[in-house]
């Protein structure tokens, strides 16, 4: 793209009507450099954190028997993965998380779409939704055990109760975001309701829906682990309770590290899918990140100043 745009700048320049702005290419380089920079900082920050932890524990600033230390919990993790049953416990937690996440996402998406498309449904159900959303769902966990038993299904229920509302509200908010301009365009083109939804409304909601899904995923892990901790020795939650009750902090942190790695991996997978689906959004936001300036004329800022004021005769 870069090469092409600079060629256009050149042709416009030939007309004597445009002033060259050659920021396109250096800008791209800065962008990539920033990315690399970020990664370097991240790795560095992680090293500092682990190093400080290790040093503090060794120097006796914090009691290592309570806080463990990297040189002990990483070997413990390895040991638990090879000889212990951490893999199968993680598997149980992951399965619950994924089933709960899938259910919450699908139900939330459907509910959000119904709310956005039906004025009656929105009016009638909004107070109920807000009310349920304000309930402390974690406190309902024992109730779900009572209803669904000690097995995985009570955890799935807890996850759905947490994630459903997040996805519903994000979907609803995203679907409201489709601008009046698109609606007018769709109307003049004689587009029917279903088509308008598929081609104009839903695509503009995708970024907001995805941020809801990301949040839902975090809450899914939370729900699974908390549910397991309540019901005893199943999954990672059960493992955590067990290790803490026997004061085995090393094994406890080993499990934590595994949980962090697995949830990070899942989030990253979602992020990759998101980036593929909404490539346009990345392009749109480019140049608005910190450090990028002087792109006044580029479309990315949507030029609010250039838009005409709303005229009184307009509808």
């Amino acid at each position: 793209m870069e090469a092409r745009s600079s060629s256009l700048v050149a042709t416009l320049e030939d007309d004597g009507l445009f002033v060259t702005d050659e920021i396109e290419e250096p800008q791209a380089n800065i962008f990539i450099r920033f990315l690399r920079h970020d990664r370097t900082i991240q790795v560095f920050a992680l090293c500092v954190l682990l190093g400080a932890w290790e040093l503090c524990a060794r120097a006796g600033v914090v009691p290592a028997s309570f806080t463990s230390e990297p040189s002990r919990f990483f070997p413990a993790l390895w040991d638990q993965l090879i000889h212990g049953n951490l893999v199968s416990l993680m598997g149980v937690t992951l399965t619950e998380t994924m089933i709960g996440f899938a259910l919450a996402s699908v139900l939330g998406l459907l509910a959000g779409i119904v709310l956005a498309e039906s004025r009656v449904a929105e009016k009638v159900s909004r107070p109920f939704l807000v009310g349920f959303n304000n309930l402390p769902r974690i406190a309902l966990a024992p109730l779900f055990v009572l209803w669904f038993g000690l097995g995985s299904s009570s955890r799935v229920a807890l996850i759905v109760s947490l994630g459903f509302f997040i996805v519903t509200f994000n979907t609803y908010a995203g679907l409201q975001a489709a601008g009046r301009d698109y609606m007018l365009l769709a109307k003049t083109l004689g587009v029917g309701r279903i088509r308008r939804f598929r081609r104009f409304v839903f695509p503009s909601a995708v970024p907001t829906i995805f941020s809801g899904l990301q949040l839902c995923l975090s809450y899914a892990f939370l729900g699974a682990v908390v549910g397991e901790m309540l019901t005893g020795n199943q999954g990672l939650g059960g493992y955590f309770t067990l290790q803490l009750s026997s004061f085995d902090v090393d094994n406890f942190f080993a499990g934590m590290v595994l949980l962090v790695i697995v949830s990070l991996a899942l989030s990253s997978i979602m992020r990759v899918i998101e980036l593929q689906l909404i490539k346009w959004r990345q392009i749109e936001m480019r140049g608005l990140e910190a450090g990028a300036s002087g792109r006044g004329q580029r479309g990315s800022n949507r030029s609010f100043g250039l838009r005409p004021r709303d005229r009184s005769e307009e509808f």
Partner: peptide, 20 residues
């Protein structure tokens, strides 16, 4: 009526769909 294929409209705002 709206939706005629032989009628075109152009507004002040381009209304381009950013995902296309």
């Amino acid at each position: 009526r709206t939706g005629r294929t032989d009628v075109g409209y152009l507004f002040a705002r381009d209304s381009l769909l950013p995902w296309r």
